[in-house]
Design a protein around this nucleic acid. Structure first.
Lengths: 227, 227
DNA sequence: ACATCTCTTTGACTTATGTCAAAGCACTTT
DNA sequence: AAAGTGCTTTGACATAAGTCAAAGAGATGT
């Protein structure tokens, strides 16, 4: 219990809460360990609560009738997921599986509902959280509808380069998963990477990628320039 | 002022609040009238507050570098928009224009922030609101990424038929706007409608559409069957 | 080192959807 | 009614991206 309190402190959703509020949260939280590839919930399952990632990584995704998948989110330590169906009362809107061995906290719906009603700060954190996610979704919708795959990839690479040290960066997901994140398939992604290499925009070998022509990538990502 | 209170009562975001809470909201709300096509905010504008539609209709959309638009939402009476940037502090994520002559209420950020901190019920309403919208976005992402245009159209028609009286239904947006809502262009939409007519799935003339083969549409919408 | 997987790349091909241009319709304005 | 304006439809065409199949590369375990 005590160590759960400690872990809660690093979670943005719970930022700035009082000690007693942490304890109240810790009291209702349930720990769960999942090995890689474990199904946490399926689309349509009744939302009996939501989760926080302590360690590992969880993939939230939709699957089409013929098996293609679109990743909606990849959540890492400190991030929460499944809140939405706690509040809409509808089933989960997508599937969730662990991408790697992971440790989760589960917050049951009823108990958490009671808590949030008495903690305005928690409610406001939740609002901020949902707002950020909505913004992110708006961006994904824009990308899927208005950009071509090279544009989405360029945007992703530029974004990744901000977070990573100078020079070389390393993809933190497999290329197949990256394809799904960008709303395409591995073959298409592979071809586009090859083309970007040929045009000296990037230099990639395996998961290592170095940006050679930042401006060129920006033109593709933002101005819709063709590859 | 008094009549503003009356109008607030019909707004889901404010459902179930007390009389004094309505009055507090009415005190900070500003009225605004917009004629058709008026720009309410642009992507990137600082979010100084959010809006509620009293009458009319507002279109929230993204535009690509080369002018194609993707509608994110069409909001009608009682619905609110622009909340997200109130809580993230970032600029508006998309553009908003009135689709027809409309009357809006504007809630300034600061004042509303103060209110929501003291009204747990209001905060919970906001959470429910954002959650619903997130779910809706997840559906749009799924459609854009995993369904083809005929599937999206079939889904839209089936959805519309639920809300409308038996038999014939009338499109409540122009076909150009419908195309933008479905993530495509008018030409493509037109061709697909023509094809659905030829295959006796629907019978459409102008904005009037009658569903002839519901099961057939469902196969296209849900099972990805080809047109 | 070898065999076995899984992931990635490449090639040839198909197809859905976008582009461009023109014609058709419907509505308003005069 | 005529003329203008903005939607919608249709046709011919271009192309981005998916499908299918096979080969290559990298890991992992025995």
């Amino acid at each position: 219990m005590v160590d759960v309190v400690k872990q809660l402190a690093g979670i943005p959703l719970f930022a700035g809460l009082s000690k007693s509020q942490y304890e109240a949260l810790a009291r209702i939280a349930l720990r769960r360990s999942c090995r890689k590839g474990e199904l946490i919930f399926s689309e349509g399952d009744a939302g009996t609560g939501f989760f926080v990632v302590l360690t590992g990584r969880v993939k939230i995704f939709k699957v089409s009738a013929d098996g293609k998948e679109q990743i909606l989110h990849l959540f890492g330590p400190g991030e929460s997921f499944g809140e939405v169906s706690v509040f809409t009362g509808q089933g989960f809107p997508a599937d969730a599986v662990t991408a790697v061995q992971s440790a989760l906290l589960f917050f049951p719906r009823q108990a958490f509902g009671a808590l949030i009603q008495q903690n305005p700060a928690l409610a406001l954190n939740m609002i901020a959280q949902l707002s950020r996610r909505l913004m992110q979704f708006a961006g994904l919708i824009e990308d899927l509808s208005l950009k071509e795959v090279p544009g989405r990839l360029a945007k992703y690479l530029l974004f990744l380069s901000e977070t990573s040290a100078a020079g070389v960066m390393t993809l933190d997901v497999s290329k197949g998963q990256l394809a799904s994140l960008l709303g395409t398939i591995p073959e298409t992604l592979s071809r586009i990477l090859a083309k970007m290499n040929r045009q000296e925009l990037i230099r990639s070998r395996g998961a290592q990628i170095r940006i050679l022509d930042r401006r060129g990538l920006e033109e593709i990502a933002l101005e819709g320039k063709k590859l």
